[in-house]
Structures are given as C-alpha cells and as structure tokens.
Design a protein around this nucleic acid. Structure first.
Lengths: 108, 108
DNA sequence: TATTTGTGTAATCGAACGATTACATATAAT
DNA sequence: ATTATATGTAATCGTTCGATTACACAAATA
C-alpha cells in the first residue's frame, strides 16, 4: 500500500477535500455534505489523507474535526519548484533540441 | 482512463523519469537503461507522460528522443503554491484549533 | 434507558494500474 | 538483401483503487 503525498493528491476528490480544509477545519460529516459520494468513500479518502500526513483529526465527543497539515503540501511545492528553471527558460528547449538533432542527423 | 499531471506524478518511476529528462533529453532506450524494469513498462510510462503533456517525443530515424515540457509541471507548482499561506502561518493552526474546540466543548 | 447521531470497518465488486512476455514494424548497418 | 537495432503494441495477470451496502459502536439526546 503506497501512501505518500503524490499518490494522495492524484485523486481529484482528495484535492477538493484539501481545498475545502485549507479554508477551515470541518467535521467528517461536513466534508461528506460537500460531495456526491457516500460517507464511507469520504471516510476512506480522509484516512488516506491522514496516513500521508496531510490531515489530522481532533476527536471531540463523537465528532471528528479534520484539520489540514501544510507540511506535506510544501513537499509537493518544493518538488515542483525545483524544476522552475525549466519553465523560466524562455527559449523553447524542445524546438531547439529538435533542430539540433535534425542537423546532426543530416550531417553526422 | 484518468490522464492528468497529478495522476502522472503519482508514480515514483515517472517522477524519476521526469527528473532524468529535466537534466537533458534522452532516447527511450537511454531511459530504459536507468531503470530495472522492462522496456514495455518504460514505454508505457513515457506514453502516460506524453498523454498528459509532460513529455514530447522527437523521432529521428528509429530513435525517439524524449524531451520534458515544463508547462504542466508548473501547474503542479502553482497548485501547491496556492496553499503557501498555510505553511507560512507560524502558529500551529492545528493545536490552536484543537484548544479552541475543547474550550467550546467544555463551555458550550 | 431507549433512540438518534456521527463515525469507522468489513465485505464486495468492477475498473484501472503496473508489470511481463511475445510479437510487430520500421530504420540502419553489413 | 539480410541482419541487427530501436521502439511500439497486444495479451495477460495479480494488485490496488474507489465506490457501495451493511454492520458496529460510542456519544449525545430524549
């Protein structure tokens, strides 16, 4: 069972849950109300988010309040950020590489 | 068949391929050499990366050169970045929320 | 105490995933 | 023309995913 942030954010429902919780904490049922899928399905999504450290639960009475934990989100940001130089490279490196290649191919 | 960046980067092998190609373009077999899995497996990973716009191929003769396309990587970066305020919030919002909750619960 | 409420878990099911082997095809080299 | 090389595709297989229904249980409420 792979359980890391990248796998967690692969699912669009989970990204929507992250978005919801980023605004403010919600109880499990409050989360459920925002979606068209069953409570067990949401419960499982929350479990996955919890297992990879994106969400923590605070149990008060019979309610469980879900709070987002930003640390792992930052890992994603950092991962993508480190390719920043690629999109900041103004020249289209694909086209450049392609013409270089074709040149080499004709005059090897 | 879901096919978007987030699903694409969920797989660790694909993230490694992205990393490899971010350094410089490689032919398919050059990519294969870097991994312990079969060529068809890599071929499929490259197909997925291509289908979600992370990679383009330049066919020269019988070789296919894989080049990374940064645009979609930027989408990931932007997605995560927009939660930046969460981790820049110095106070631990989880602990804060928790104590507020418990207070409310005792004095409702 | 009996009932309602909030939530988690188990069983189940079809679809998607990730890998492999075997085969197909086009280009390059001999 | 034949052979070797670079690559894609099809068939197959076990695993994981994401959803549902049915059940379990503890806390709040009546």
């Amino acid at each position: 069972m792979r359980r890391d942030v990248f796998q967690a954010i692969a699912d669009p429902v989970r990204r929507d849950i992250i978005d919801l919780l980023s605004q403010q904490p919600h109880t499990v049922n409050e989360v459920v109300e925002q979606f068209d899928i069953s409570r067990p399905a949401i419960s499982n999504h929350l479990k996955i988010l919890r297992e990879c450290g994106l969400v923590k639960m605070a149990t008060i009475g019979r309610e469980r309040h879900c709070v987002i934990i930003p640390k792992e989100l930052r890992r994603v940001s950092d991962w993508a950020q480190c390719y920043q130089r690629l999109w900041e490279d103004k020249l289209d490196s694909f086209e450049r590489y392609l013409s270089e290649l074709k040149l080499k191919h004709k005059n090897p």
